[in-house]
Simulated assay, not measured.
Amino acid sequence: MRAIQITEFGGPEVLELAELPDPEPGPGEVLVDVTRSGVNYADTHQAENSYLSPASLPLVPGMEIAGLTPDGHRVVALSSSGGYAERAAAAPGMSFEIPDEVTDDDALALVVQGATAWVLLSKTARLDPGESVVVHAAGGGVGTLAVQLAKRFGAGRVVAVASSGEKRELALQLGADAVVDSSAPDMTEALIEANGGRRVDVVLDMVGGRVTDESVRALAPFGRLAFYGMASRELPSPVQPANLMKYSTTVGGMWLPHVWRLPGEVMGTAMAELFSLVAAGNLKPVLGGTYPLAEARRAHEALRSRGTIGKLTLDPRA
């Protein structure tokens, strides 16, 4: 089968097209004929071995696939790696049947980015109706869905932060009440101004560095910042517990693989609700384009440039 393989860690240049044997499914796993592979920002960290879970070489990257099972069911599935290929093994507990009303590309937009936005709002930040929500990287896969879900979950005001006029206009079309340029010299001041002069209740942050520091300073008493990525590759300042108490604020982190291990059906509940919203036309995944499998390197370059909008996918059949 054709697959993208990494034999040394680094940037997009380490993604190479290769001919590899089909993967051997483990106990309970099924071999999926992949119709689309999802490209996730975490994949860029996996390629350079800077992700939360260390990688080992050689590696076929990718953790999101959509395709057909041997018995003909359309599924979207998660795996720790192996998604950038014509065939991939999927565990039943991390596979979700795609409704007829939902496309493969839409399903891939939901299984990591949609679930991330759902968990951030409902579990990490525990959004209450009427609260204000800041969504950083609002033009990305998580951000475009988080803006919509925040409104669906009852947010009083959604402030979208994005790097270009096109992305900020899209955020407004998706339901944001105000937008902020991500290059604002003082993010604290910009967020408070965009929230009508009031400090904000919830911040969803995957940027890191000064953006995180200045967003924490924009929180209202009992405000929460949910940290789920570090696209800037810059560490924020260490959190001082005394300051959390002094300002009655909370800083929390979220990594989606932990959700997979929770008791109960948290991931299943999230996917069922997301599928239902898309099927009913009440949630619109934003699709940023599909690249042939052989051009995975170009997809990573586009993602790291922060010039993309919405969800990127690979077509293993192209």
Score class of each variant (00 low, 15 high):
Ala162Arg: 12
Ala162Lys: 08
Ser163Lys: 03
Ser164Tyr: 12
Gly165Glu: 14
Gly165Asn: 12
Gly165Ser: 09
Gly165His: 08
Glu166Trp: 11
Glu166Thr: 14
Lys167Cys: 08
Arg168Gln: 14
Arg168Ala: 04
Glu169Gly: 02
Glu169Ile: 00
Glu169Phe: 00
Leu170Arg: 14
Leu172Asp: 01
Leu172Met: 10
Gln173Ala: 14
Gln173Cys: 02
Gly175Glu: 03
Gly175Lys: 11
Ala176Leu: 09
Ala176His: 03
Asp177Gln: 07
Asp177Val: 01
Ala178Cys: 01
Val179Glu: 10
Val180Leu: 09
Ser183Glu: 09
Ser183Trp: 02
Ala184Lys: 06
Asp186Thr: 04
Asp186Val: 09
Thr188Asp: 02
Glu189Phe: 04
Ala190Lys: 12
Leu191Glu: 08
Glu193Tyr: 05
Glu193Leu: 04
Gly196Asn: 11
Gly197Glu: 04
Gly197Lys: 13
Asp201Tyr: 06
Val202Asp: 11
Val202Tyr: 09
Val203Lys: 05
Leu204Glu: 04
Leu204His: 03
Asp205Phe: 02
Val207Thr: 10
Val207Asn: 05
Val207Trp: 07
Arg210Met: 08
Arg210Tyr: 01
Val211Asn: 13
Thr212Gly: 02
Asp213Gln: 12
Glu214Met: 10
Arg217Pro: 00
Arg217Trp: 01
Leu219Tyr: 11
Ala220Leu: 07
Pro221Met: 07
Phe222Gly: 02
Gly223Ala: 00
Arg224Val: 14
Ala226Met: 06
Phe227Ala: 11
Gly229Asn: 03
Met230Tyr: 03
Met230His: 02
Ser232Ile: 05
Ser232His: 07
Arg233His: 09
Arg233Ser: 02
Arg233Trp: 12
Arg233Ile: 01
Glu234Phe: 04
Pro236Cys: 12
Ser237His: 08
Ser237Cys: 04
Gln240Ala: 12
Gln240Val: 13
Gln240Cys: 05
Gln240Ile: 13
Pro241Phe: 12
Lys246Met: 14
Tyr247Met: 02
Ser248Asn: 13
Ser248Phe: 06
Val251Ile: 15
Gly252Thr: 11
Gly252Tyr: 02
Leu256Cys: 06
Pro257Thr: 06
Val259Ser: 01
Val259Thr: 12
Val259Met: 07
Arg261Ile: 08
Arg261Cys: 01
Pro263Trp: 10
Pro263Asn: 11
